[in-house]
Design a protein around this nucleic acid. Sequence first.
DNA 1: CACCTTATGACAACGCCGTTGACGCACTGG
DNA 2: CCAGTGCGTCAACGGCGTTGTCATAAGGTG
Lengths: 235, 235
Amino acid sequence: MSERVVADGERRRRRPTKRGTVLSEELIVETALRLIGEHGAAALTVRRLGTALGADPSALYRYFHDTDDLLLAVADELIGRTLRSWRATGEWRADLRSLGLRIHADYQAHPQAAVLTCTRVTGRVHEMRSVETILGILRGAGFPDAEAVRIYHVFVDQTLAFAALDATVLTLPRESRTLEERTWRERYARLGPDTHPQVAATAPILVAEMGRSAYPAALEMMLAAAEARLRHVRA
Amino acid sequence: MSERVVADGERRRRRPTKRGTVLSEELIVETALRLIGEHGAAALTVRRLGTALGADPSALYRYFHDTDDLLLAVADELIGRTLRSWRATGEWRADLRSLGLRIHADYQAHPQAAVLTCTRVTGRVHEMRSVETILGILRGAGFPDAEAVRIYHVFVDQTLAFAALDATVLTLPRESRTLEERTWRERYARLGPDTHPQVAATAPILVAEMGRSAYPAALEMMLAAAEARLRHVRA
DNA sequence: CACCTTATGACAACGCCGTTGACGCACTGG
DNA sequence: CCAGTGCGTCAACGGCGTTGTCATAAGGTG
């Protein structure tokens, strides 16, 4: 191979593919996101992406070193979109809540990219700006520095951890997911009170609860605990 | 296919493979865990597992419907190992705390497997016993059913999510991990108070805090919020 | 012990996947 | 308008999960 993966701006000759589309890094990333959104996470393969672009799959290797490189580009685009659409209100609980829920939701809209991205420290502009933003919210609310940093850490890692967890579930093939749902509905709901009294006593509530993400509830508990700490500090 | 996947106990004829090993569900799961531990999560393929067992890959389909089914068995074995070493004290906060920390620690001892299995609902024996245990702790503490189920969900998902997040970091190749950390520190050290005042004001605390897992702090905040709810319910 | 049934391991094949090297067309700089 | 080369295309490789078929040994039955 010619080992030539070049930044999009330095590209010299844009030759249309056999089906007439003109490739670009941006178009490829957008198409990848569209594929994920339309046909599920499993639809994102190099071959299918090539087909969707009307190009030979191997053409993509002129733009990205490998699949991982492509997914990172997709992830970076995601981070940008998320940050771009957030607005601060000035009330610390409302701001943390909306920021957390927005990150969680945006990542779940593109689970494949989220799973790969969540655990990586990018050190890029967007990430550093988010650190600054969240720390500002907490210190502005009156948390002492050590407390603010600790809560920042919990908030960020909890949000990313849940985003990755919930995204992983969405990444599973459809059969596995419906299987899990049925596992709760059928197997757990039918456990006898003699062997599993706790489950048997709460079965309907369990089935309803396990069908959704625990992140909103976890976030609320975290915010409540933080507010209690804040009152304690101020007293 | 004969569509015959039979529980391990009901197996009638144990024929040794060409290389002499006698297969069993247990042996397959153990070998899978060993493969993951020795060569990373990516090493777990049906073909390699077959080779490691000295059997034809297709022989595994007599024991598990497909790769997903096998993965669920591996996940359940992990849960079982963790539960086997835990003891209840009778005080709900202490019990949840020790259980959470133990799960988190045990999963990080097998990071490769944790990443692969954290998100799966297995519906198998060990998992069902863990649900029963945790629900028992919460309802025994006096939480009403709906509240107990909600807190159970938050507790479990938060623990697994952090376990997977922290395990993923351990999974990264050593070089990229140290590289990321160094880049991160250098970038944050360079941030001036003019552009990033919040980070600049807390830099030393930040560096110290980000070096460890946020799970213990997150767990404490969750327990504090739960106790507040409990007091509210009782009043 | 001999026989029959059948569970179960082996084999070969299918259709995916990511990735790469060789090739040659068409675009761009001169 | 020509030359050089950037980049899309083609073909192929090796690996993957999975399945249909076959053969063989285990184990009940007499």
